[in-house]
């Protein structure tokens, strides 16, 4: 749209001071954003490097950086991936329900309800997770341990409080559901009407229409929604910090016991208050690791969207 104005600018002879100030302000605001993003990376690196190079007896954990951060990375990825596994099918289902199964008017109201879920602050999710969900999940974990205990994930001993990595993942799944649903819904709604009607006219059932017309069109959008959800889940702090009962340095596939690996973000939130000296730097360095992981995930998600933008509804 701005391209139509381009010739005008070339011909304009008078450049007023107001114009110069205004365009200068705008341009510098744009550049400032780049600087801020670079600043985030730079300051984390500056403050993080002493933490990475610190010798084991200088930090509270008594470990050098790699053995210290590895269980945290593992916990972060584990919780986020489980959350994603739970949330993706539900999000697609909900989005499909809102966009194609419910009456149109109702769909708008329902969409608003889901958006409401996105607005709930994370500390409220945390309180809900520890005050409501965890006690409710405890008997289920007991059941899983006694009936499916042969699967390593459910080996137990089951946590009596329900504050397990499984519970944390469920809370995370609830938290990332709205954003993923919102993106999927938008893309499903953008599916060309003619594709859908053509499928239905050829005698396809509604599900076959979804499979043949909607999903191929929305595939890259679904992928990017999932990756954005993954980014959220990786970085979520408070809900995990409140719900999970952690024991430092654990790396386990057991999802229902009371000894769980912590996540990077939760570990920072829990230990930052009492930390001092090189321990702070180590925590900042772990934050840098988290930043790099989420940056890569988001970068990949955006790249997927941008690459497929021209021939799909994802933008």
């Amino acid at each position: 749209m701005t391209s139509t104005l381009a010739p005008r600018r070339k011909r304009s002879t008078v450049v007023r001071p107001g114009d110069r100030i205004f365009s200068g302000l705008s341009t510098s605001a744009g550049i400032l954003i780049l600087i801020v993003l670079a600043g985030v990376a730079a300051f984390l690196t500056i403050e993080g490097i002493p933490g990475i190079t610190a010798s084991p007896d200088e930090v509270k954990s008594g470990q050098s950086f790699l053995p210290y951060v590895w269980p945290l990375v593992y916990g972060t990825l584990l919780a986020a991936v489980i959350a994603l596994l739970i949330a993706v099918p539900v999000a697609i289902g909900v989005a499909l329900f809102i966009s194609h199964y419910s009456p149109r008017k109702l769909g708008q109201v329902l969409g608003y309800l889901i958006d409401l879920l996105a607005a709930v602050p994370s500390v409220v999710y945390g309180l809900w997770g520890i005050g409501f969900l965890a006690p409710k999940m405890a008997p289920i974990y007991q059941w899983l341990e006694s009936n499916l205990g042969f699967i390593p994930f459910f080996a137990g001993p089951a946590s009596a409080t329900g504050r397990t990595i499984m519970t944390a993942s469920i809370v995370l799944a609830v938290m990332i559901l709205p954003i993923m649903t919102a993106i999927c819904r938008e893309i499903f709604l953008q599916t060309p009407r003619l594709h859908e009607e053509a499928a239905l006219a050829l005698g396809a059932t509604r599900w076959e229409m979804a499979r043949m017309a909607i999903f191929p069109y929305a595939r890259s959008g679904i992928v990017s929604a999932a990756m954005l959800g993954l980014g959220r889940a990786l970085g979520e702090t408070l809900a995990v910090a409140m719900v999970l009962s952690v024991s430092a340095g654990t790396v386990t596939a057991n999802l229902i016991s009371s000894t769980n690996p912590s996540t990077i973000a939760a570990n920072i939130a829990l230990s930052f208050g009492e930390a001092s000296g090189k321990t702070v730097n180590a925590l900042i360095a772990s934050g840098l690791v988290l930043f790099v992981i989420t940056f890569l995930v988001n970068f990949a998600a955006r790249a997927v969207v941008d690459r497929r933008k021209d021939f799909s509804g994802a933008n």
Binding site: S122, G235, T237, A265, L290
Partner: peptide, 9 residues
């Protein structure tokens, strides 16, 4: 990409 920066970072 910045939209996805974790709040703790």
């Amino acid at each position: 990409v910045m939209t996805g920066i974790p709040s703790i970072v």
